Simulated assay, not measured.
Amino acid sequence: MLWRKLVALLSVFVYQSDLTHAALVERRIDDTQGDSATGLRPVYLPAEGVWNGLDCSQCQLKPDIARVFGGTYSEATYRPARGIVSVDIQFEGVAIDVYFILAPFSARLTTLTECLFILDGGEPATFRYQPGAEDTEFIYEHSVFSRTDLPDANHTLRITVPEVPHELFLNFDYAIYMYAGLF
């Protein structure tokens, strides 16, 4: 988990002066409820008609709600004729870890997950998961992107699909970021 990766960095960010202390604080960004501290919510594009959640009656891939963070998730199927699918997450911190729900194999449904992570407009990082016939269960809380070397500043992370000629499936559950808090 992200906090384990940052234990070594904690000593760098913890300092003491006469009146001020700082430490890394873990915060979560839920797909629906947003940032646990600021309330800022992810921005899904397109805004309508592509992204679905628990209330999707036509969705055939249904994760176990008891196993998803906060009891919610946001999923979309990219179809080339419809255009790009993306979600933007804003946070202030020094590290971030993004978690997806990965779909099991299906011979009739799109279950290939492939996406790009573009942090602050930089070079994209790619994630790809193609379930095989032996993959019969959803995979929950799967870390699909992690960065621990960020400057303590405001950041925007765009999760988007590559422009490919085939369908892709995305299921965003939550993100964890580390904030250098003062107290």
Rank of each mutant, 00 (worst) to 15 (best):
F91K: 05
Y44S: 05
S86Y: 04
P63E: 07
F169L: 07
V161C: 09
Y129R: 12
F138L: 05
E141Y: 09
L102T: 06
G121L: 00
P124R: 01
A175H: 08
F169P: 02
V12R: 14
P42Y: 03
S86A: 13
D64M: 09
S36V: 06
E137S: 13
Q90H: 13
D18F: 15
L2K: 03
G71H: 11
L116W: 09
N154A: 11
F91D: 02
V87K: 01
V12F: 15
Y73C: 07
L10A: 14
E167T: 12
E75V: 01
L24F: 05
V43Y: 11
I118Y: 00
E48V: 12
I84E: 10
L24C: 04
L2M: 09
L61S: 11
H21G: 04
E75C: 10
L150T: 13
G53S: 06
D35Q: 10
I139D: 01
C56M: 04
F127P: 04
Q90G: 14
L9K: 08
A76L: 05
A95I: 06
A133T: 14
A76F: 04
R108G: 07
Y78M: 07
E75T: 03
R82D: 14
A76K: 01
P42M: 05
G181L: 05
R4P: 09
A153S: 15
Q33P: 01
L157V: 14
Q58Y: 08
F127R: 01
I65P: 04
E92A: 14
Q33K: 12
I65S: 11
A107G: 08
S106G: 07
D88F: 07
P80Y: 05
E114A: 10
T32Q: 00
R79F: 05
R79C: 06
D149N: 15
L150N: 10
I139A: 09
L112P: 01
G132F: 05
S86M: 04
R128I: 08
T20Q: 11
E92H: 15
C56S: 12
M178K: 02
Y177W: 04
H155S: 09
G49I: 08
F172V: 10
F13G: 08
H142Y: 06
Q130K: 12
Q60P: 00
I159Y: 11
F91Q: 05
Y140W: 08
L2R: 03
S11Q: 14
H142C: 01
A133Q: 13
V144R: 02
T160Y: 05
D35M: 10
D18A: 15
H155F: 11
A95Y: 03
G39V: 11
Q33S: 13
Y78Q: 06
E48T: 15
V85W: 02
L112I: 10
G34D: 06
